[in-house]
Simulated assay, not measured.
Amino acid sequence: MRPILTLQDVLTRLMFFIGVGALAAIVLIYAFEVVSRYAFGAPTLWASDFVSFLLLITVFSTAPWLTREGGHVAVTILPDLVGRLRQVILRAGFLVAAATCLWAAWLCIGEVQHLASRGTATLTTVRIPKWILVAFITYGVANSGLYFLRLAFGQALSETDSQPEVTHG
């Protein structure tokens, strides 16, 4: 099982860097748009579209990394109040989160297939196939769901064999 978990961690790290690159591209595109619009009086027609696409890529490429690192939103008032049942409640919450993410991924897989088979494109100035964007959403929710499963069942969160205690709050 360890090689599969390590492969998931490596893929997550790679996608995290893709998300960081997309965020850097957003900054550069916005800077270019501002200079083009206000210094040269020639706004671009494509900048807003690319920023939207890249923002989606940033969010869903980095979400599994954040889940892995415990950076997801966690409301822990109930687990904090119950003392020794804390781990049980947290793990149950992780199972619910995993089920929700994996269900969403299942729906997205069907949507990717549907969009690809129909050749549906975005309704923007810069038209791209919609399935590409939905594929990033699918990756983000599916891989986050798998990390929530790892949290629920106490699997190590990193490539090392250490198993940190599940504490988020």
Rank of each mutant, 00 (worst) to 15 (best):
L85G: 06
W106N: 01
D49M: 05
N143R: 14
P164T: 13
M15N: 07
A22P: 00
Q155S: 08
V59K: 08
L133W: 05
I109H: 05
Y38P: 00
T120S: 14
V134M: 05
S144A: 15
L66C: 06
V51G: 00
V75M: 11
A47P: 01
S117K: 15
F50H: 06
A116D: 14
R68K: 15
G70R: 15
Q113I: 07
Y30I: 00
G145C: 04
W106C: 02
V35E: 05
R13S: 11
A74V: 13
Q163K: 13
F148K: 10
A39S: 08
Q155E: 14
I89W: 01
V51A: 06
R37S: 01
S48L: 11
G71V: 10
A47T: 05
L146N: 13
P64M: 07
A142G: 04
F16G: 04
L157E: 15
L90S: 07
I77F: 15
S61G: 03
E165H: 04
Q155W: 13
W131L: 08
L107K: 00
V20D: 06
A97W: 03
A156M: 11
V126N: 13
S36D: 06
A63R: 11
P64Y: 09
A25E: 08
L11A: 12
R118G: 04
F50D: 08
T58V: 05
G169K: 12
A156V: 04
V73L: 15
W131N: 08
T12P: 02
L28W: 01
